[in-house]
Structure formats: structure tokens, C-alpha cells
């Protein structure tokens, strides 16, 4: 279980996370939704230990990050490193011995080509494959469906469902509500660095309608489209 208490984060004078209290249980899938700049990525970076913060983040692990697979919104790649070397690099970092990498290439990526030449979606799939092979207990997936084709979207959704069966904890941020509704046990709505709503599975459909009404409202009418 990961417990977050009074988590705050400032970038200079600007407060990007405001006294957040959350708890993530083992074997559950959590969705985080919110506008761009709401603080989702910063929250993930704080949980991962990539950012300093105020407040407490505790878990049953001595070092949470050593059991955590982090998929960044825009994964970073070195210029002359192949797909398989990228996977190897992340496995080496966790002292994982990889076997039959080709068989585990479920997204059919051209692993012998330089990763920097991959398309956005392929990069995302490569980064996801690498963290999947790290044998983590907890996964933070920041926009895992962004730029990914429909077939891979289905595979990722199934992987997340599989995680639940394997008692893994997963935190996902996404702008595609349907994928969150299909996989999550609970969704947190973030706005201006705060968690403004916590919604259980039974209320997902209400949340979607609410979000639509709140977000869209009469904005489009203002365009006076003809």
C-alpha cells in the first residue's frame, strides 16, 4: 500500500501540488484525470522519488522506487541505441536477466533499429515493454494510450487487467475516459494541484457526464461554427 499524506510541491513560488492525501491499495487500479497542467505528472514524479516534495509518501517497501515501473508521458531515448538495448539498459538497472527478448516483443517492435527513429506510439510501446520486463510490483503509467494505435491500445488495456489479477498496483493518467472506465477501480479528479473528487467504479458514468458538462458546457457554441 502507498500512502500519501499532505503532499505539496512548489516550483519556485508556484504551488503545483496542494496538500494531497491519497492511498493506493495492493491489487487495485487507479486512474488520475485532470486538465493539462493539473499536476498529474508532478504527482507521479513525486511518488517515484524523482522530485523533492513536502509531506509524506510511505509504502511497505524500503525503497519504493526499486519496485516501481514508471512510464513517462514522453519517454526519453538516446540517439544511437536500439530497441533491444533500451530494454537491456532498463533490465540491467534492476539486475534482471533477460531471456527470449524476441518472444516478449508483444508489440512487434523492430528491436534492432535505433529507438530514436521510432514513431511516437512505438516509443511508448518500447518504454512500456521495458518496464513490464523489469518485474515491478507497482506501475505508474503516465498517458500510456497517447499516440498508440488501436490494436496496441487493446493490448495495454488487457495488460492492465492482468496486473489486477497479479495483485499489482497501477496508477494511470489518461485523457481517454473509456479506457480508464474499463480498467480502474477508482478515479481521482485533479484540478490546480488538488484532488477535487474521488470516484468509485459504480459512479464512473456519472463522472463522465459531469466532466463533459463541466468541460464542454457552452464553449463550442462560442465558436459560432457554420
Amino acid at each position: 500500500m502507498i500512502k500519501i499524506e499532505k503532499l505539496s510541491k512548489f516550483y519556485g513560488q508556484k504551488q503545483v501540488l496542494n496538500t494531497i492525501d491519497l492511498a493506493f491499495e495492493k491489487g487495485k487500479i487507479y486512474g488520475i484525470v485532470g486538465e493539462n497542467g493539473a499536476g498529474k505528472t508532478t504527482l507521479f514524479r513525486c511518488i517515484s522519488g524523482l522530485e523533492n516534495y513536502q509531506g509524506n509518501i510511505t509504502s511497505g517497501y524500503k525503497n519504493l522506487k526499486d519496485h516501481l515501473g514508471l512510464l513517462l508521458t514522453e519517454p526519453f531515448f538516446f540517439p544511437k541505441i536500439t530497441g533491444s538495448e533500451y530494454i537491456q539498459l532498463l533490465a540491467n538497472a534492476r539486475q534482471i536477466k533477460l531471456t527470449n527478448m524476441e518472444d516478449k516483443n508483444i508489440f512487434d517492435l523492430p528491436l534492432n533499429q535505433y529507438a530514436s527513429t521510432y514513431s511516437t506510439g512505438m516509443k511508448k510501446k518500447l518504454a512500456l515493454t521495458a518496464i513490464l520486463l523489469q518485474e515491478n510490483d507497482i506501475f505508474i503509467l503516465d498517458e500510456p494510450f497517447n499516440g498508440v494505435d488501436i490494436q496496441s491500445n487493446l493490448i495495454i488495456t488487457e495488460i492492465i487487467k492482468q496486473f489486477k489479477k497479479l495483485e499489482k498496483t497501477v496508477l494511470i493518467s489518461s485523457h481517454i475516459f473509456s479506457t480508464l472506465a474499463a480498467t480502474c477501480d477508482e478515479i481521482f479528479l485533479m484540478k490546480n494541484g488538488e484532488i477535487i473528487r474521488k470516484v468509485k467504479q459504480a459512479d464512473f458514468s456519472n463522472l463522465e457526464t459531469e466532466m463533459k458538462n463541466f468541460t464542454i458546457g457552452n464553449r463550442i457554441d462560442k465558436l459560432e461554427l457554420k
Partner: peptide, 22 residues
């Protein structure tokens, strides 16, 4: 040309893997 320069350092990325290719 989509050609990957072979390197003897493939198993232990990244400094020598990338550096050797450059």
C-alpha cells in the same frame, strides 16, 4: 539508410554502446 552499426557493447548500454557508434 536504416542501418544499425554493430557494437560489442550491446549487452551493457549505454555509454560505450552509443559512444562506439558515434
Amino acid at each position: 539508410i536504416n542501418f544499425t552499426i554493430p557494437t560489442p557493447f550491446s549487452k551493457t548500454p549505454f555509454e560505450f554502446t552509443v559512444g562506439f557508434r558515434k
